[in-house]
């Protein structure tokens, strides 16, 4: 079970937020591409991109929350996170996706696809962790 309650959506998901890539380039959050994450992780000494596949999406403990179960990395380690419906994840080759694209668009003006079971999300782990 998830260990903590969902956190409020942080400000950097608001459309127009300025994001700095690992090479110093600045982009708006809505303009980020899969390659930006991959390239940034490649030149990071500490962080590694993992593929995290959505395996289940269940209701959370509060009305606006969901519990998402991911299979992380090559070993498909099971990780659950509880987040707000509007929390966006970046899906490989697709872009921002959330469990409630309407809410994400309304609250943050960030265009989203619907996050579905089987989607493969960008996630991070520390290099060297096993």
């Amino acid at each position: 079970a998830p260990s903590s309650s969902p956190v409020a959506l942080p400000p950097f998901f608001m459309r127009g937020s300025i994001i700095q890539l690992a090479d110093g380039e600045l982009k708006r959050v809505e303009d980020l591409k899969t390659e930006d994450f991959i390239h940034s992780a490649e030149i990071s000494s500490e962080l590694k991109i993992d593929s995290s596949t959505v395996e289940r999406i269940d209701d959370g403990q509060t009305p606006n929350a969901v519990v998402i179960q991911f299979a992380v990395g090559e070993l498909k380690a099971q990780v659950c996170v509880e987040v707000l419906l509007e929390y966006p994840f970046f899906v490989f080759g697709q872009g921002w996706s959330s469990c409630s694209p309407d809410r994400t668009t309304r609250l943050f003006e960030l265009s989203c696809a619907k996050l579905c079971v089987g989607d493969v999300c960008v996630s991070l782990t520390l290099r060297g962790l096993r």
């Binding site: 700095q20 959050v29 980020l32 940034s40 992380v72 099971q78 996630s123």
Partner: peptide, 25 residues
């Protein structure tokens, strides 16, 4: 084309969930 001075700049990794499969299961 992007003015960084008067607006906050967030690091790219802030946007990515940190899913570390190292917790006890």
């Amino acid at each position: 084309n992007v003015e960084p001075r008067s607006v906050p700049v967030f690091p790219w990794h802030s946007l990515v969930p940190f899913l570390a499969p190292t917790q006890s299961d």
